[in-house]
Design a protein around this nucleic acid. Structure first.
Lengths: 406, 406
DNA sequence: CTTTCTTTGTCCCGAGTGAGGAAGAAGTTG
DNA sequence: CAACTTCTTCCTCACTCGGGACAAAGAAAG
């Protein structure tokens, strides 16, 4: 059983929560903008000097923020800097279909340490948690953290958000109704929030990636499956039952391929990490692509990474697979853009390795099919955080929760 | 020039606005729940009795609310009723592609008078406004109103909401950039808000129709064109450029019919009031439907109403047209349901006359194509307000604006 | 009809909040 | 070193708001 506190006056775990909206606002400003001077915070929050001083003092009392030396002069007396307590640590866990990412961040959500481990989510919650907790322990052992003040976790399926429980997840047998939040909170001894992995990716890109300062955007994640994070007015929209953004089973072709869900022509059946791997292996076996055949020979199986590599080497079959997939995805995104009129579309997930070939065909399709008013000023870009998007978003999730009035 | 006030102490036009969020809250409660006692309002708003008394007194001073006798006893002293000033009048204008609806409501948004006049929106803003204003004057002349405290107006195309200006409306040449809000406010001498007609329909159904107490829902309006109102957390979502919900040009068939927008296979090209009329005329001429042929003979042209009537009379061709159209719409809605996971889908607009035949085929398609988690508890229903949905929504729009802190 | 209890509206007090002024501390510029 | 700017702290004053006391109005019981 870990002792609280290390000894020489180290911070104990975060106990206090902001007492009011002003304090919450200040904490978020410090989280998103880093250390800052009292004077500059005053410019940002529209509070009187006296009020600001009172609230800052209270936050200092709680230990959530600490003094941090003097700021540069702005022409007169130098102001005192304050920052979020440097000992605060958040844990971000991103459970993918085939791997687990775990990261430790400070209160500013900078990733201090990050581990990735392949694991099939179908092994069930107990085995997956065991693995995730051991990864967290490993990170702790490197001295990055003495404990965690909060943890966020993403799972590849719909979640009943308030309770933090997966509901009817198609690719996660055994997880349905498993009390993820409750269990993890017990094991870690800190507050936990659970969300869909796609929503976390969206939050990650919003916090530290391409979607900063965009209020309404879509974040399409193409991995083993396909999902879409929806951000409305800066907040993630989860839908009535938590399944919003589940676009993998939108029909792209009435007479298309059969899908695991029982329907025909679902997007996921035509393009996703899994579908691409299947297509690539088939192309290899049928002799259409010597390049892929050679790789299959070497590795015994193919994945999206192989297709990306083959495409980069100039393999036309691979390029064609990517292009056709991009068209399928673009077709769906075009519909969503017409419907949702976002200010930005981010493409992320495992297949970002396919890069600009994919992006180009998606763009072509969207710009051709959607109306000019919706596409006129619509950037469609790749996510810039890659593997840390999910864990950053997880940290963001729990910090949003903790940095809000109790 | 109309004199302000009628003489014997009649209310002059609404001058004051609520001074704070509490007052705004009270006004909205009285709007949505009708007259109410001070005591019961106290139960609803979570303010101390003293605070509540102060705010109510201030509202009485401004004239926005008036005393309204005594409430029934709840076991002790009877409380005083208050209600919104009975002289307040809102004007709701709904400009459709082929007709104009104008209505007068009281502060509780009850429709006191309603006029409809056929008119082609393509005649341009000047002619349309002239017509709308003369209809408003006619309603005024019946003694329903002495003047208007605010007006809401809906136009069949995207609107830059903050300014109240249509942007790049495809079916409204001549309206692009026309300062609707500015001009109408000048003519009527009261505050005006402008929105897309589909959004207004959604607000109407939310206020007085099937969507009461649903936070997240979609409202699909099938008239001359097809659009979709999106309500997120009780508020209309308009998108980055105001074109959210523009689903008429989502592709339903890559090799489908050419559409006016330049693409192929748009939803609107396959099913909408206009497409249905075309299909019906073609069916009549080709001899596939004697029923429709006879109607074409009589009227010289056909519309959705004729198809509805023929279907009701058992014409199989008409039924087939409706069913196929419903499938097309259902296909698109199924995608939107997967993406948005709404708590309700409302179908409205001119084609609601097609009724349950249409509804049945939409439902079939959606329930078959979307995942169970999203459709499990998803009602798909016809709007219940019909022609007054738009004008009610318009009144709601302006009242939301006026009943918010200045 | 009287008594007792409940509910409602009003008045008043006191705690707390928050804006702004004054003064002093800390720097910069000339 | 003097003059000016910026930042922090301290103090005061006005205001808000919740809650208690009390009176008014009605219901229920006897």
């Amino acid at each position: 059983m870990p002792q609280a506190g290390g000894g020489e006056g180290q911070l104990r775990r975060m106990t206090a929560r902001p007492a009011n909206a002003h304090q919450a606002r200040l904490l978020r400003l410090l989280r998103d903008g880093g250390p800052n001077s009292r004077a500059q915070l005053g410019d940002l929050v529209d509070l009187s000097r006296s009020k600001l001083a009172v609230e800052v003092d209270r936050l200092l009392d709680t230990g959530l923020i600490v003094a941090d030396g003097l700021a540069a002069s702005r022409g007169g007396r130098r102001s005192h800097n304050i920052r979020l307590a440097p000992g605060l640590r958040f844990l971000g866990i991103d459970i993918g279909a085939t791997s687990i990412d775990v990261a430790v961040t400070n209160a500013e959500l900078e990733v201090l340490g990050h581990l990735n481990h392949p694991m099939d989510v179908r092994e069930g919650p107990v085995a997956v948690f065991e693995q995730a907790l051991s990864m967290a322990a490993k990170l702790k052992a490197t001295g990055l953290a003495e404990g965690f003040d909060g943890a966020g976790i993403g799972v590849p399926g719909p979640v009943r958000f308030p309770e933090g429980v997966p509901v009817a997840p198609p690719i996660m047998p055994g997880w349905d109704g498993f009390p993820v939040r409750e269990a993890l909170s017990q094991d870690l001894g800190c507050p936990v929030m659970v969300d869909n992995d796609v929503n976390l990716m969206a939050m990650g890109e919003q916090h530290a990636g391409v979607a900063r300062s965009v209020a309404d955007f879509l974040c399409v994640k193409i991995g083993t499956g396909i999902g879409c994070g929806i951000v409305v007015g800066g907040a993630v929209y989860r839908g009535t039952t938590g399944s919003a953004g589940d676009i993998g089973h939108i029909q792209v072709d009435p007479h298309g391929r059969p899908c695991a869900c029982g329907n025909q022509g679902c997007l996921e059946a035509h393009f996703s990490g899994a579908a691409l791997a299947r297509d690539a292996e088939e192309a290899a076996r049928s002799g259409r692509s010597p390049e892929l055949a050679e790789r299959l020979e070497r590795a015994g199986q193919l994945s999206a990474v192989d297709v990306a590599a083959a495409a980069a080497a100039g393999d036309t079959t691979s390029l064609e697979l990517i292009r056709e997939g991009g068209n399928r995805v673009g077709q769906v995104i075009a519909g969503l853009v017409s419907f949702f009129n976002p200010g930005l579309v981010v493409i992320g997930g495992g297949v970002t390795g396919l890069g600009h070939t994919l992006l180009a065909s998606v763009r072509t399709q969207v710009y051709r099919q959607s109306l000019p008013l919706a596409t006129g000023n619509l950037p469609i870009v790749l996510g810039e955080l890659g593997q840390v998007a999910g864990v950053t978003g997880a940290a963001r999730l729990i910090s949003d929760h903790l940095f809000s009035p109790a």
